[in-house]
Amino acid sequence: MDWGAVAAGLLTLAIYSFLYRDNPVYKFAESLLIGLSIGYALVTFWQTAILDKLVYPLFSHGQLLLIVPLLLGLMMFSRFSRRLGWLSRIPLALMIGAGAGSAIPAMLYERTLRQVSNSIQPLVTAGGQFNFSGLVVLVGLLSTLAYFYFSREHKGFLGSFAKIGTYFMMIFFGATFGYTVMSRMSTLIGRVDFLLTDFLHYLK
């Protein structure tokens, strides 16, 4: 007997019992999932960050500069002290500052410049045909940006153009919603398939 499939099947059913209502069986599975997830993250970070990036390079290769992040990391534990709690802000500041510093060029390139450049398409193709889809992208992009332009009151042309932007946003929200529902559905189908095939052996 495949005990792994039995355990996975029982826990799957325990989680689906929430569809009836909140109950102790669901709460047991939920608590187990929380504990296992934290434990898994703990082991993963211990191996990939602490052992691979700190312990081995520091003690095996003598990279003494790594004492700095070690001390900064240990400072995080000062959060448990009222008197020394402020020390934990120093490693936190390094993380936030480094994250913010690398975010500026990344955001400028990925979220702004690349999005603009990808939206600029020729409206008339090399064969002389009109590119309707390109026009839709251009109007959709500009009108949605107009909706988020708050420096002027949305009246007249700007108001009408921003209104078109809301239609494009509704298409985006609707399409995203439909896509999300279908991705959840495919996961549900996967779980039901597992229950019927590997757990109950109804299907082969």
Binding site: F45, W46, A49, I50, L70, G73, F80, M95
Partner: peptide, 12 residues
């Protein structure tokens, strides 16, 4: 360093 400190924040 960021990853090492992040691991410590996880331990906290």
């Amino acid at each position: 360093w960021w990853q090492i400190i992040f691991a410590f924040t996880l331990f906290v």
